[in-house]
């Protein structure tokens, strides 16, 4: 089948119209994702690509796959990307310094390898091959067809996915979880600690004035041991040097003897 007949036969369907509108949007978004400077914009363009892919799945009569694409990729994976952005800090810029030794070389080698893999896969694709058709594949329902293939032919791949999920959980635990070495403090213990360690009295600052004999804002209150409490007088008064000495109002034998 040559190109002209493909164009004549297949580009007039609504699906083809959808493809020719959506595909450039997706390719431009994918390119923009690599080009834009802000990581958040890159993530949003990635979301555009993912939603476009989901629309293609639905247009190809794979509604379950389309919804899963939205739920898992646009929902969960996108959320993870945005979480990472917020963990790192939205405004933090990329460092061009290599933190892993030989990172650049291995990145280049890896991308060249993936590129060759893609080329070899795409070159094996044939146009105009006989296909089963959606009516046959989706005969008993899209989800049923997927389940039948997934749980019989690809059962090993399906079981291996659970190992992948274990790896994900383990990696997250190793990276993000800090082991608790001491038992967690209860609220009562925390409160007791706060009272014991605090520099500020728990019951508020003591009021000024020497009780029973004199009461004025410039006289420090007396602590239970008889010493003046500096925190009971306003700092302003202390700064002005207008602090009165409570000992002058003390009723004791020495004071009485001095007056006589």
């Amino acid at each position: 089948m040559n190109l002209a007949s493909i164009v004549n036969n297949q580009t007039q369907t609504p699906e083809a119209v959808l493809f020719f509108i959506l595909a450039p949007v997706m390719v431009l978004s994918a390119l923009g994702m690599l080009v834009v400077k802000k990581a958040v914009h890159s993530a949003l363009l990635l979301a555009v690509v993912m939603i476009g892919l989901a629309i293609f799945y639905i247009a190809n009569e794979a509604p379950f796959l389309g919804i899963v694409q939205i739920v898992v990729y646009t929902g969960a994976v996108m959320m993870l990307f945005l979480f990472i952005l917020m963990l790192v800090g939205v405004d933090s810029s990329d460092s061009l310094e290599e933190t892993i030794k030989g990172q650049r070389i291995s990145a280049v080698l890896g991308s060249v390898g993936v590129g060759f893999l893609l080329i070899s896969l795409l070159s094996r694709a044939e146009l105009g091959r006989a296909y089963a058709g959606l009516e046959l594949v989706n005969g008993e329902g899209n989800v049923q067809a997927i389940a039948k293939t997934l749980f019989t032919r690809y059962v090993w791949a399906f079981e291996v996915i659970s190992a992948l999920l274990i790896t994900a959980a383990l990696g997250a635990m190793v990276l993000a979880h800090r082991e608790r070495l001491l038992p967690r403090k209860s609220q009562r213990e925390l409160a007791a600690e706060r009272v014991r360690q605090s520099a500020i009295p728990v019951a508020g600052l003591p009021g000024p004035g020497t009780y029973a004999l004199h009461n004025a804002v410039d006289i420090p209150a007396l602590l239970p041991d008889g010493s003046p409490a500096d925190s009971s007088v306003s700092k302003t008064i202390a700064a002005r040097g207008e602090l009165a000495n409570p000992n002058t109002f003390r009723m004791n034998e020495k004071n009485e003897a001095g007056e006589e």
């Binding site: 739920v71 969960a76 959320m79 979480f83 790192v88 999920l165 994900a168 959980a169 997250a172 993000a176």
Partner: peptide
């Protein structure tokens, strides 16, 4: 830049696993 605590990463990952 309003950074999140790293604790949320574990929550996000667990969500993806069950998703």
């Amino acid at each position: 830049g309003g950074r999140f605590p790293i604790k949320y990463f574990l929550t996000a990952m667990l969500f993806i696993i069950f998703d």
